[in-house]
Design a binder for these strands. Structure first.
Length: 829
RNA sequence: GCGGACGUGGUGAAACCGGUAAACACGUAGGAUUUAGGAUCCUAUGCCGAAAGGUUUGUGGGUUCGACUCCCACCGUCCGCACCA
């Protein structure tokens, strides 16, 4: 009988589905396990072997957990809103909705061919209005709590996609999708106040089991830093008493002319030799009347603001700036007047957009000072008890010294260490009301508007009388109108703006004619909370039933790509925390454990891409070798977390292995008793599978299966039917079709998937005979098979009696003998 | 620059609470089978050497009876962030 996967696989796939083996049961008495991977974007390209890698691995995990007696929720759905589909639709003339349907059908077919054990009854689709009703509902709740707001902001604008991008979607100053350099465009945008969750998003990482690099990347992205905001008064404010329309009282005028700088290095305050403002800084316009070279300054600002982010970063090396002549800033530490500059190396949106320039102790300031001839004053020097191997202090004639040290040239603070000085100078200024301890974040609020058709409409109505009015909950969902024209307008307005019968509505508050918000949500909106919906996918009354959420959440194991660390993973944690605050869900964190898979590159080492023509379609592999071979190879090819190149030769090895399994089960005599040797190997395999699965070491699991089969085939006479059955059970989560088929063929009743996961016997796993290594001076010279209980005395005796050993120790003095039970005896001569 | 990961055969890799380096697989070579090819099976396969033996985990040093594993320095690769004060 030949192993023909193409015949047996569809048969079992159909059978499993009919039996409903993979349906998760709400409120089951069994312990629950919610296992999830990031739901795919159903693109027109279809599934490729890179997707399949994590799918089959997480599927194997789910199958094993079911056999262990867990009530497993392993769901699947479609993250279908977004640009690629819209672009595809524009190109082909097929409506996005139609294209999405087709793509989903294709993905579904491909997935089913892989034998993935999803609970298809809970399938969701973010573009389904029954689903996005609740995406909109979440938006209304955010709006209610002032966490969604509108702002005129410079948006990262991709001129090619004609869409605004979130900071997270800008990669190296270019559009994440097409790479076109991003421009700045001022638009009124919806924003989500993710920044108010910054601290919790950092702190609660303590509670979850994520890879360290994911945690540190998120922390880095949020970028919390503790520092001080120090007031630098400007000269001339009182004396001149200039007209300022925006402020009426003299005291507010005074406040207006104070520059607040943010620093984490208060210890370097006495080294300040200038203050630099970002070109966008509002104080510049307030100081207008005092600036002697106003035209020069304005020209510089106009130029800088116009420059795109791309150009600004390109010019990173060469710092530019213009001095505001006629204005000086007063250093509160020593009363010194220092020049005020405007320079575009200062980031407007961080730390208030103003910095104190300490050329001696900051690389950027050093460059700036060198270029424009500012004074470089050393205030931090070598730490007296100079620890070896560390550079303390620096040669400031050559470069800035940015380390900590001891203060000099700093008045009463001389002699203090940097750490101490930061504290004391901060306190000293604070008493005088000239500074404030501050915490700043790199994280910025999330731009939540997109000027596109294929997204969730934002449920807001703009009324000329009442302003922005939220849609009533009972009116949800706000359906995306089905239209023929969905090309972006390119004006900054969404294509929805031209559909008058949809746009024009009555204000829900006063009834007067009003207009709908025409921006849609970004594609992250639907994926923010999809895993919540799996718990209760058909609920039309609420986002999901609380009892069900209490039962299923949090997700026990969430696998996804590293590329989502500062996108989806961060966003969805934020949204979950918000839902926790409004008591929709009941824990502060959505995912207990996070793992991530590596990318699969094409055989040529490049990214798989249609344009390179190097995409491997799983359909072809399934046709040639069967799904089980593909499944095993995807897991075997390398460490799960690492990027790896596809190798079609490698598939053969896995196919050969399955043919061996077939032979072992059907052709070996298998009427015998299992020898101690084989039994031990079997229990060791059992243990290995369990342990390595928790650490996502799928590659070594498959290797262990291979090892066992090789051993079993070499010792065919020593293996019993029971041992083969047990082996098949162990294999079934990884290669479910062949295991099921063989289970039936060897005459067992019921599905192999309904078998209990075997427990290994810790006693059996122990070796009966161990290899004792004999070393001379740490070099292996001989090995002997001994009983594990062998005493040190006996071991020495045996070792000295060996011919090989005699040769090495003959005539030499024995200095020391190290004996490690069951492992090694090392003779030092 | 900052943060993180990593460097082992011809290839993908394994071993890492310090204890036989290279498991498993691919590839390659030889053999068996076959009219031939493919498939399959057997044997060999880090490097030097006929063998005995020597030698090998990016480089250099250290700790140790013993280091791929721990420590220090350097070189290199990849990923993320990046003028964030």
């Amino acid at each position: 009988m030949k192993y023909e996967p193409q015949k047996i696989e569809p048969k079992w796939q159909k059978y499993w589905e009919e039996q409903g083996y993979y349906l998760a049961e709400d409120f089951s008495k069994k312990p629950k396990k919610y296992i999830l991977f990031e739901f795919p974007y159903p693109s027109g390209e279809g599934l490729h072997v890179g997707h399949a890698r994590s799918y089959v691995a997480i599927d194997a995990l789910s199958r094993k957990k079911r056999m262990e007696g867990y009530n497993v929720l392993f769901p699947i759905g479609w993250d279908a809103f977004g640009l690629p589909t819209e672009n595809y639709a524009i190109k082909t003339g097929i409506h996005p909705q139609k294209a999405t349907e087709q793509n989903i059908a294709n993905f579904k077919r491909q997935m089913k061919n892989l034998g993935l054990s999803f609970d298809w009854s809970r399938e969701i689709n973010t573009t389904d209005q029954k689903y996005y009703k609740w995406t909109q509902w979440i938006f209304l709740k955010l709006y209610e709590r002032d966490l969604a707001y509108q702002a005129e902001i410079p948006v990262n604008w991709c001129p090619s996609c004609k869409i605004g991008l979130a900071n997270e979607e800008v990669v190296g100053a270019g559009c994440e999708r097409c790479g076109t350099p991003v421009e700045k465009k001022i638009l009124k945008q919806w924003m989500l106040k993710i920044t108010s969750y910054a601290d919790r998003l950092i702190d609660d990482l303590e509670m979850v089991d994520y890879p360290e690099r994911v945690k540190s990347q998120q922390k880095n992205w949020i970028g919390k830093s503790y520092g001080v905001e120090i007031d630098f008064k400007t000269t001339g404010a009182e004396e001149i008493g200039e007209e300022d329309k925006s402020s009426s009282s003299p005291s507010s005028r005074k406040r207006d002319s104070v520059i607040k700088v943010f620093t984490t290095r208060a210890d370097t305050l006495f080294g300040v030799t200038a203050v630099v403002l970002a070109p966008e800084h509002e104080i510049i316009s307030k100081l207008k009347s005092r600036i002697l070279n106003l035209k020069e300054v304005q020209d510089y600002i106009n130029q800088a603001v116009k420059r795109s982010e791309f150009e600004r970063t390109e010019l990173a090396k060469e710092k530019t700036g213009v001095e505001l002549k006629g204005v000086k800033a007063i250093n509160p530490a020593n009363g010194e007047e220092v020049p005020v500059w405007v320079g575009d190396y200062v980031v407007a949106v961080y730390g208030g957009g103003a910095v104190m320039v300490v050329p001696a102790h900051d690389f950027r300031d050093y460059d700036f000072a060198k270029k424009y001839g500012l004074e470089i004053r050393e205030v931090v020097s070598v730490c007296p008890p100079k620890p070896e191997g560390r550079r303390w202090g620096g040669d400031i004639s050559r470069e800035a010294f940015v380390g900590y040290g001891v203060l000099i040239n700093s008045g009463q603070f001389n002699g203090l260490t940097s750490e101490k000085a930061i504290e004391e100078i901060t306190a000293w200024l604070e008493v005088r009301n000239e500074s404030k301890k501050t915490i700043k974040y790199k994280l910025r609020d999330w731009v939540f508007s997109r000027q596109h058709y294929w997204g969730e409409p934002i449920p807001i109505i703009h009324c000329p009388k009442c302003g922005a009015v939220p849609v009533l909950e009972k009116d949800l969902p706000i359906e995306l109108p089905y239209v023929e024209k969905y090309q972006p307008t390119g004006t900054g307005e969404s294509p929805l703006a031209v559909i008058s019968e949809w746009v024009n509505v009555a204000c829900p508050e006063c009834g007067s004619p009003a207009k709908r918000e025409t921006d849609t949500m970004p594609n992250w909106a639907g994926s923010n909370w999809y895993y919540i919906r799996y718990c209760d996918p058909d609920n039309s009354k609420e986002i999901a039933d609380s009892q069900k959420l209490k039962y299923w959440l949090p997700v026990d194991w969430y696998n996804g790509g590293m590329e989502h660390t500062t996108l989806h993973l961060l966003y969805s944690r934020f949204i979950y925390k918000f839902l926790f605050d409004i008591r929709v869900v009941f824990q502060p964190e959505p995912y207990k454990k996070r793992t991530s898979h590596g990318m699969v590159l094409a055989q040529d080492g490049r990214k798989m891409s249609k344009s390179f023509g190097n995409v491997i379609n799983p359909d072809d592999i399934v046709r040639q070798y069967g799904a089980d071979t593909l499944r095993l190879y995807e897991m075997f090819m390398g460490p799960f977390g690492e990027t790896i190149a596809w190798n079609s030769q490698g598939l053969k090895g896995c196919h050969r292995f399955l043919e061996k399994v077939w032979r072992l089960a059907l052709e070996s005599s298998a009427e015998n008793k299992t020898s101690a040797n084989i039994l031990r190997a079997l229990h060791k395999l059992n243990k290995k599978v369990e342990e390595d699965l928790e650490e996502t070491k799928f590659n070594t699991i498959i290797a262990s299966f291979m090892e066992f089969v090789n051993l079993a085939l070499e010792n065919e006479k020593e293996i019993s039917r029971e041992a083969i059955e047990r082996f098949l059970i162990l294999l079934s989560p990884f290669a479910p079709h062949i295991s099921e088929e063989l289970w039936e063929k060897i005459g067992k009743n019921g599905s192999i998937q309904k078998q209990e996961w075997p427990k290994y016997d810790p006693l059996l796993v122990k070796e009966e005979i161990v290899n004792l290594i004999i070393q001379i001076n740490g070099k292996v010279r001989d090995k002997i098979e001994v009983d594990p209980a062998l005493s040190e005395e006996k071991a020495k005796e045996i070792a000295f009696a060996r011919e090989k050993i005699k040769k090495w120790i003959d005539g030499k003095e024995i200095k020391k003998i190290i004996f490690i039970k069951d492992k090694i005896i090392n003779i030092v001569v």
